[in-house]
Design a binder for these strands. Structure first.
Length: 769
RNA sequence: GCGGGCGUGGCGGAAUUGGCAGACGCGCUAGACUUAGGAUCUAGUGUCUUUGACGUGAAGGUUCAAGUCCUUUCGCCCGCACCA
C-alpha cells in the first residue's frame, strides 16, 4: 500500500472558523477521502498553531490567561471543524503551545545552537512599539508590523538569530526540485533570497591607511566611479567625520535618517539626500581622488553599506550626481554607435577605462574582476538579500528559548534532559514595561547546569514561525516523548504529498519550513531535504469583490451556512464555484443551487429501478471525475456528476448500480448526504469506504461518433461516423458522400483534412463557391 | 523598475495535446402545478440587421483550423522594491 500525506495549513485558534478555513479544509478533505478510496495509506492530520500575540493581548484586555483563552478557542473551533465532516485522524491532534510539543521546539533550538546555527547578536532590528517586541524582516510589511500595522522602529538590541543565510544557496537551487509548486511561489522565494553576483573592492581612504570595501555587480564600470556613498548609520561614519568641517552637517543627516520610518526612507519617490563627509577616497584602478558622501539611499544591511557611485550607468547615482553637481563620466558606449542619453544602463563597449577600452562590457566585467583579484584589491563575491532569521520575541505566549546565562560559564544551553523549559502560569499581564517572563522571579532565577551557581534564564520566547516550521514532522509521530519524531516514521510519511494553504505564506512559513527540513536532514534526523512535494495555494474567499472582513461587514459565517443548509452544501458550493487556486466570490443564490443539487440526487430514489441503460454515461462520468480530481479541477468534477444526475433524472428507469456510482463518486465532496443515501440503497458499510470506481473502457465503445464537417474552416454540418474510420477512410468518404458533395456545390477541392473521431475540414477554391 | 498572474455571456466559470466557444451552476423569461411561491417541474436564454453573419480586452501574424501558438499593445490583480 502506498502512502499519501495530505496536509492543510493548521489554523491559529483565533476563536472562529472563517470561510477561508472552510475552503482550505474542504479541498484537503476531498483529496484525503479520494486517495483513501483509491487504496492509499492516507495521513490527514489537524492541529493548532496556538502560540502567538492575540492570546496575550486578550489577557491584557480581559485578564484571561493566554492558555485558558487559547484552549477554549481550540475547543470551539474543533467542534466547528467536526461539523464540516472532515476526515481527520483526531488521534494525531496537538497544539504547539502544549509542553509536549514545545519541548521539541526547544529541542530544535538546541540542535540549531549546538551546530552553530543559532547565535545571539547585537543588531539594528525592527521593533514594533505596539506589540512591544522585535520582528523578523519578513514580518515587516511596507514599514509596518505585519500583525498590528503599527509603524516599525529600529532599535539596537541583542537578539537571537537562526543562520538561514548559510542555506541561502540551497534554498534557491532546490526550488528546481519542486515542479509541483506554483511558479509564483517559487519566484517569490527566489526574489526574497535575492542572489546577486559581483565583487567586493577595497577603496583606500585618502591620507589614511584604512580602507572601505564596496560591493558591486558592475566591476566593468569602476573607471566611471566619480564619488562614493556610505549609509549614514554605518558604524564607521562617526569616526570618519570626526573633526572635519562637515561634521555638524553630517550628524544632522544621521539624526534625520534615524528618525525616518522605513516607509519614508524607502518610498519609490523618496528624494535622495546626501552630505559630503569631508573624506576622500582613492579609486584603486585609476588612482583618482573622489569624494565620499553620506546618502540616505544606501542601505546599511545590504552588501557592505558602502557603494561606489557610477552616475553614468546607474539611475540612482545619476539622480544624486545631478542634484549635487557631481561629475558624470561615461565608461560604456552603445554598440550601435548611436548617442544615447545618460545614464546608459545596457551593455556596450568600454571607453575611458585605460587598458580595458574597446572590450565588450560584459567581457570587461570578468576581466576587471580578474585584474582586481590579481592585484589583491578585492575578490569575487555573491551576495544575498536574505538576512538571518531573528527568532527572539519579548513576549510571554511562546516557547521559551532554552538558554541560561551564567556569570562564570557564559551562555549555557539548557541540557536536553531538562526540557521542556516550562512557561510559568502565575504571571501578570499589564501590557506595559518589560515582558511578563522577565518579571517572573521564579522563572528567571535558576542554577547554571554546568557549574551550579546562581544563574538567570533567557526570558525571550521564540517566534511562532519556529513552531510551525516543523509541525508537519510531528504528525508522523505525535506521541513520541523522546524525540520530536522517529526517523523511521518520518521517513515513511515524508515528504508531504500535497500541501494546501493560502498564498500569504509563500515566503515566511514555506521558506522557514524548507530551511528546517534541510537542517534536520543534514544532521541525520530525516532523509528528505524538501518538506512539501506538491503545493496548492488556494485563492481567497471574497464577498462583493473584497476579502471578507469584520470592518467591511461582509463576513459570511460558516456556522450559519452549515446551520441553514448543512455542511455538504457549504463544501459543495465552495468547491464548485471556482477552481481552488483562484479567488472565489461568495454568492448566496449559488449556494442554494448546491443545496438544490443534493435534493435532486435524493429524488433519484423516487425513480423506477430497473436495468441500466446508462452504462455509457456512468462510465464517461467516472472517467471524467477521476481525471478531474487528479488535477484538482473539483469544479468540473462536480459539474460532471451534475450532468450524470441530469441524465438519470430524465431517464425512464435507472439501475441501483447507476445510483451507487453517483453516491460513491459524490462521497468525497458530500460525505454526510451520501452516507444517508448509501443506507437508503440498502448497502452495508459506508459509501466513503468503497473502492473508488474504475471506468470500463468497453462501456465507452460506441458504434458511431459525431464528426464535424467544415468547409474552409466553417462548420457546415455534423455527421455520425464509425469511430474506426482512419483519416484516409474519411477522405474517401468525402469524395463519395452525396450530402457532402451537395455542400461543396461543385467547387474545386484543394485539400481535405480529416481528424478521426473529430472533424473533416474541406478546403475549396473560393471562386465558384 | 523587477518578478508572477489574469482578461471568455447579465454573473461564477467550462473548453488536458491548436479541432463544435460558452459545459455545469447562478440569474433572467415564459409556462405547468398551486390558496400561495423565495418550493418543484417543463421550455428558453452569447450578440445582431437571424435562409445568415459576428463573437474569447485591442491590433497584427502563423495555420486547413487559434480562447489556446508568435509579435505588438491596453487594462486589472498579486509579490518585491533606492538590493548598488
Amino acid at each position: 500500500m502506498k502512502k499519501y500525506y495530505v496536509l492543510e495549513m493548521f489554523p491559529y485558534p483565533s476563536g472562529n472558523l472563517h470561510m477561508g478555513h472552510v475552503r482550505n479544509y474542504s479541498i484537503g478533505d476531498v483529496v484525503a477521502r479520494y486517495k483513501a478510496m483509491q487504496g492509499f495509506d492516507v495521513l490527514h492530520p489537524m492541529g493548532w498553531d496556538s502560540f502567538g500575540l492575540p492570546a496575550e493581548n486578550a489577557a491584557i484586555k480581559n485578564g484571561t490567561p493566554p492558555a485558558a483563552w487559547t484552549y477554549k478557542n481550540i475547543d470551539v473551533m474543533r467542534e466547528q471543524l467536526q461539523k464540516l465532516n472532515l476526515s481527520y485522524n483526531w488521534d494525531l491532534e496537538f497544539a504547539t503551545s502544549s509542553p509536549d510539543y514545545y519541548k521539541f521546539t526547544q529541542w530544535m533550538f538546541l540542535t540549531f545552537f549546538n551546530n552553530g546555527l543559532a547565535y545571539k547578536n547585537k543588531s539594528y532590528v525592527n521593533w514594533c512599539p505596539d506589540c512591544a517586541t522585535v520582528l523578523a524582516n519578513e514580518q515587516v510589511v511596507n514599514g509596518n508590523c505585519e500583525r498590528c500595522k503599527a509603524t516599525v522602529d529600529k532599535k539596537d538590541l541583542e537578539q537571537w538569530f537562526f543562520k538561514i543565510t548559510d542555506y541561502a544557496q540551497r534554498l534557491l537551487d532546490d526550488l528546481d526540485k519542486l515542479p509541483g509548486w506554483p511558479d509564483k511561489v517559487k519566484s517569490m522565494q527566489a526574489n526574497w533570497i535575492g542572489r546577486s553576483e559581483g565583487a567586493e573592492v577595497d577603496f583606500q581612504i585618502d591620507g589614511s591607511d584604512k580602507k572601505l570595501t564596496v560591493f558591486t555587480t558592475r566591476p566593468d564600470t569602476i573607471f566611471g566611479v566619480t564619488y562614493m556613498v556610505i549609509a549614514p548609520e554605518h558604524p564607521l561614519v562617526k569616526e570618519l567625520i570626526a573633526g572635519t568641517p562637515q561634521e555638524a552637517e553630517c550628524l544632522a543627516l544621521i539624526k534625520k535618517v534615524q528618525n525616518q520610518t522605513d516607509i519614508d526612507r524607502t518610498a519609490t519617490d523618496a528624494a535622495k539626500e546626501g552630505v559630503f563627509s569631508g573624506v576622500h577616497m582613492i579609486n584603486p584602478l585609476n588612482g583618482e581622488k573622489i569624494p565620499l558622501y553620506l546618502a540616505n539611499y544606501v542601505l546599511l544591511d545590504y552588501g557592505t553599506g558602502v557603494v561606489m557611485a557610477v552616475p553614468g550607468h546607474d539611475d540612482r547615482d545619476f539622480e544624486f550626481a545631478t542634484k549635487y553637481n557631481l561629475p558624470i563620466r561615461p565608461v560604456i558606449k552603445p554598440n550601435d554607435g548611436e548617442e544615447k542619453e545618460l545614464p546608459f544602463l545596457e551593455v556596450g563597449t568600454i571607453i575611458n577605462s585605460g587598458e580595458f577600452d574597446g572590450l565588450d562590457s560584459d567581457i570587461a566585467n570578468d576581466k576587471i574582476t580578474e585584474h582586481i583579484e590579481n592585484k589583491g584589491l578585492g575578490m569575487k563575491k555573491v551576495n544575498f538579500r536574505l538576512r538571518d532569521w531573528l527568532i527572539s520575541r519579548q513576549r510571554y505566549w511562546g516557547a521559551p528559548i532554552p538558554i541560561i546565562y551564567c556569570d562564570k560559564c557564559g551562555i549555557v544551553p539548557v541540557p536536553e534532559k531538562d526540557l521542556p523549559v516550562l512557561l510559568p502560569e502565575n504571571v501578570k499581564f499589564t501590557g506595559q514595561g518589560k515582558s511578563p517572563l522577565s518579571e517572573c522571579e521564579e522563572f528567571v532565577n535558576c542554577k547554571c547546569p554546568l557549574c551550579g551557581i546562581d544563574a538567570k534564564r533567557e526570558t525571550d520566547t521564540m517566534d511562532t514561525f519556529v513552531c510551525s516550521s516543523w509541525y508537519f514532522l510531528r504528525y508522523c509521530d505525535p506521541k513520541n516523548t523522546e524525540l520530536p519524531f522517529s526517523k523511521e516514521k518520518a521517513d515513511y510519511w515524508m515528504g508531504v504529498d500535497q500541501y494546501i494553504g493560502g498564498v500569504e505564506h509563500a515566503i515566511l512559513h514555506l521558506l522557514y519550513a524548507r530551511f528546517f527540513t534541510k537542517v534536520l536532514s543534514d544532521f541525520g534526523y530525516l532523509s528528505v531535504d524538501e518538506p512539501f512535494e506538491n503545493l496548492l495555494t488556494q485563492g481567497m474567499v471574497l464577498k462583493d469583490g473584497t476579502k471578507m472582513s469584520k470592518s467591511v461587514g461582509n463576513v459570511v459565517s460558516p456556522e450559519e451556512i452549515i446551520e441553514k443548509y448543512g455542511a455538504d452544501t457549504a463544501r459543495l458550493f465552495i468547491l464548485f464555484a471556482a477552481p481552488p487556486e483562484r479567488d472565489l466570490e461568495w454568492n448566496d443564490d449559488a449556494v442554494e443551487g448546491s443545496y438544490r443539487f443534493l435534493k435532486r440526487v435524493e429524488r433519484l430514489f423516487e425513480k423506477k429501478f430497473g436495468e441500466s441503460k446508462l452504462r455509457f454515461d456512468v462510465h464517461k462520468c467516472i472517467k471524467k471525475v477521476t481525471e478531474d480530481i487528479d488535477r484538482f479541477h473539483f469544479n468540473t468534477a462536480i459539474s460532471a456528476i451534475m450532468e450524470l444526475v441530469n441524465v438519470m433524472s430524465k431517464a425512464d428507469e435507472i439501475s441501483p448500480d447507476d445510483l451507487q456510482a453517483v453516491i460513491v463518486m459524490l462521497s468525497p465532496f458530500a460525505p454526510e448526504t451520501t452516507e444517508i443515501l448509501w443506507k437508503k440503497l440498502g448497502k452495508s458499510g459506508n459509501a466513503g469506504e468503497q473502492p473508488w470506481p474504475k471506468f470500463d473502457p468497453a462501456a465507452l465503445v460506441v458504434s458511431e461518433v459525431e464528426v464535424v464537417v467544415q468547409i474552409n474552416g466553417k462548420i457546415k454540418t455534423k455527421l455520425m461516423l464509425s469511430p474506426d474510420m482512419t483519416a484516409a477512410d474519411m477522405q474517401d468518404f468525402v469524395k463519395t458522400s452525396e450530402d457532402i458533395q451537395n455542400l461543396i456545390n461543385g467547387a474545386e477541392i484543394v485539400k481535405i483534412i480529416a481528424v478521426p473521431k473529430k472533424l473533416i475540414n474541406i478546403v475549396v477554391r473560393q471562386n465558384g463557391f
